[in-house]
Simulated assay, not measured.
Amino acid sequence: MESNWKNSISKQRKLLAKSLSIPLHAIAEKCAAIEFERDKINAVLSSEFAQIPNCTYLYLTDLNGVQLSDNMSKQGLITKHFGRDRSDRPYMKEVVPSEGFLLSDAYISINLTRPSLTALQVIKKNNEAVGFLGADFDLRDLPVTTKLYQESNDWRQIKGDPSIRSLVFQQSRVESVLDQNIDQIFAILEELLTQRGMFQGVFHFSSSRATVWVMDDPYRYRILDQEALLDTDICMAYPKRPYPEDALIPMDKIKPIFSTMKNLRIADDTIYLRSASINIFNGLISLTFSCDGSHYMPYHEFLEKNAAFWGADE
């Protein structure tokens, strides 16, 4: 897997730029050799369109972004775009590198409102820029050239709604059904995680519910309301499964994780845990507090901290 999503995107963009720069440069040279007349430009674009893999539209503009050709597409010429002013489109506002080729950042297209990107090649006559050759691409048509990136395990803190943060000291925790039965409910959730195939759970303390995912049906979540969480028989609804060997959170750490969550929930009536989640495969714990701030961290870092660290008294 790629190390993160930015590296994955960068690698794909480099491969795509490499595959497009040479054929676009060749077509630009053919355009430079003719008069910029609509029919002559269209003829070049029509004959060369197949040289640009996965292209949606191919066209030529002047230096101001006004289109001097029709749009060439897989279905043939689309005449309504002749004379179109593209100067306000995102790719026309980017700085073209000195080599004369630009692969734009992705943007949302006007026609289909879908993620797209554009490759621009400067057209030169007598070593002077006279226009741009543009090639539009629908991201759906482009091949994925890298593997799925791996989510970072670095501790991340994300601030929430400012209006909630500003009122945090005017609120107080109201004891929920989950709070009143927290030891029993956490024992049930520990059983589901360690013995019954559950690999991810999100726990909502104030509303006394949990959203869980299990390995037997990983694409669908199940909601356990307070009635289910208070009924130990709920464990019988899930087949017994061995704890996965490739889980990043060791089985014997599940109980301490729940114990720490309990402390963060009940230790302070102003700054308290509102919701939390666990995923045993990526090893991450997430926490959202009453101030609406959220934390994502590896389980071992979570266990290293005590309630005092989070601003609550143990």
Rank of each mutant, 00 (worst) to 15 (best):
S3Q: 14
S3W: 09
S3C: 10
S8M: 14
I9N: 10
S10A: 14
K11Q: 12
R13C: 09
A17V: 05
A17P: 11
K18D: 07
L20S: 06
P23Y: 15
P23Q: 14
A32Y: 01
A33K: 15
I34D: 01
E35T: 15
F36Q: 08
F36K: 05
F36A: 13
N42G: 01
V44Q: 05
F49K: 03
Y57I: 02
Y57T: 05
L60A: 13
T61L: 00
D62C: 03
N64E: 15
L68I: 13
D70E: 13
N71P: 01
N71I: 05
M72F: 01
T79P: 04
H81F: 14
H81Y: 14
D85C: 04
R86P: 02
R86V: 08
S87K: 09
S87P: 07
P97C: 01
L102W: 04
L102S: 02
L103S: 02
L103A: 03
Y107T: 03
N111I: 13
R114A: 15
L117E: 02
L117V: 02
A119Y: 00
N127P: 06
E128N: 10
A129Y: 05
V130T: 12
F132S: 04
L133S: 01
F137E: 06
F137Q: 04
D141I: 11
V144S: 12
T145V: 10
K147L: 12
L148S: 12
S152R: 13
S152F: 06
K159Y: 10
D161L: 12
P162W: 07
I164Y: 04
L167G: 08
L167D: 09
F169T: 03
S172F: 12
V174T: 11
V177A: 04
V177K: 06
Q180S: 14
Q180E: 09
N181I: 02
I182P: 07
Q184T: 15
F186A: 08
A187D: 14
I188H: 04
E190P: 04
E190D: 15
R196W: 01
Q200T: 09
V202R: 10
V202N: 14
S207Q: 07
A210E: 03
T211F: 04
V212H: 01
W213D: 01
M215P: 01
D216F: 12
D217M: 09
P218F: 11
Y219Q: 11
L224T: 02
D225P: 08
E227W: 06
D231T: 06
M236Y: 12
E245N: 09
P250H: 00
M251C: 09
D252Y: 12
M261L: 15
N263F: 07
R265V: 05
R265T: 04
A267R: 08
L273F: 03
I278P: 00
L284D: 00
F289G: 00
G293S: 11
S294H: 05
K305C: 10
A307K: 05
E314N: 08
